[in-house]
């Protein structure tokens, strides 16, 4: 049983690229899923039944499916549905973005609903429009409540990007496993993969804890 740990060092550039793609994928997904979540939350709170139901349906759909299945499904359905050949990256991004938007919408909805009704009434009583009331009174109070949860979602998303490796997107998990297949250095590469995720994920998890402490809502 001989190990060759230098294989990690020799493939460092590839691993770095993979890691970078993981970060890019996470960032892009959140960039889409935050506005996406807000839109879905506002739709859910709309007095128009059809709009509210559509949003609720979308959210339920993604809450109740394994993400890996969504990734596969998107990979096969998207080209047929849109008659366009998407890259694996785009497919993976779409699957992740839809999934996280659904979770974010619940976060935003809870945040918005946690604001007392009287706050909105006081704003309306001054003559503000609903939009003004939301902008001036609801959102500024909802954001500190929502931020720690969004941070947790970010960390989960960072880990979930590993799932798009199954459709050959070159993020960290795919890259590490590819190098493993090429070099047959199984223990070394898989341990390196775990170590890199750990090194990136651990501080993020600690940051989330700090955010939760800092923004602990005092009523």
């Amino acid at each position: 049983m001989n190990f060759d740990w230098t294989v990690i060092w020799r493939n460092a550039p590839s691993l770095a690229e993979g890691t970078l793609l993981t970060v890019v994928l996470t960032t892009l997904t959140m960039a889409i899923a935050i506005p996406g979540g807000i839109v879905l939350a506002l739709m859910r709170l709309s007095p128009i039944r059809a709009v509210s139901a559509a949003s609720a349906g979308f959210v339920e759909f993604f809450r109740n499916l394994p993400l890996i299945l969504v990734v596969y499904w998107a990979y096969y359905v998207m080209p047929v549905a849109f008659d366009v050949q998407f890259s694996a990256f785009t497919t993976g991004l779409a699957a992740l973005a839809f999934n996280v938007s659904a979770y974010n919408s619940e976060t935003f909805r809870a945040g918005i609903q946690s604001i007392r009704k009287g706050q909105v009434e006081a704003a309306l009583a001054l003559g503000m429009s609903r939009a003004q009331a939301v902008r001036e009174v609801v959102l500024p109070q909802a954001v500190p409540r929502v931020l720690p949860v969004l941070a947790s979602t970010w960390v989960s998303l960072f880990k979930d990007t590993s799932l798009v490796s199954v459709i050959a997107v070159g993020e960290l998990a795919y890259t590490a496993m590819r190098i493993r297949s090429q070099t047959f250095r199984v223990l070394e590469m898989l341990t390196a993969m775990a170590a890199i995720y750990w090194a990136l994920g651990y501080p993020q998890a600690k940051l989330v804890d700090w955010l939760h402490r800092k923004f602990r809502v005092m009523e």
């Binding site: 880990k159 998990a173 493993r180 199984v186 898989l190 993969m193 995720y197 994920g201």
Partner: peptide, 23 residues
């Protein structure tokens, strides 16, 4: 506990199945 929060399930699965036996 914190390590499991940091590492994806996929990684734990793959390591347990492929790497652990070697070790």
């Amino acid at each position: 506990i914190d390590s499991m929060r940091a590492v994806p399930v996929l990684v734990v699965l793959v390591w347990t199945y492929f790497a652990f036996p070697i070790l």
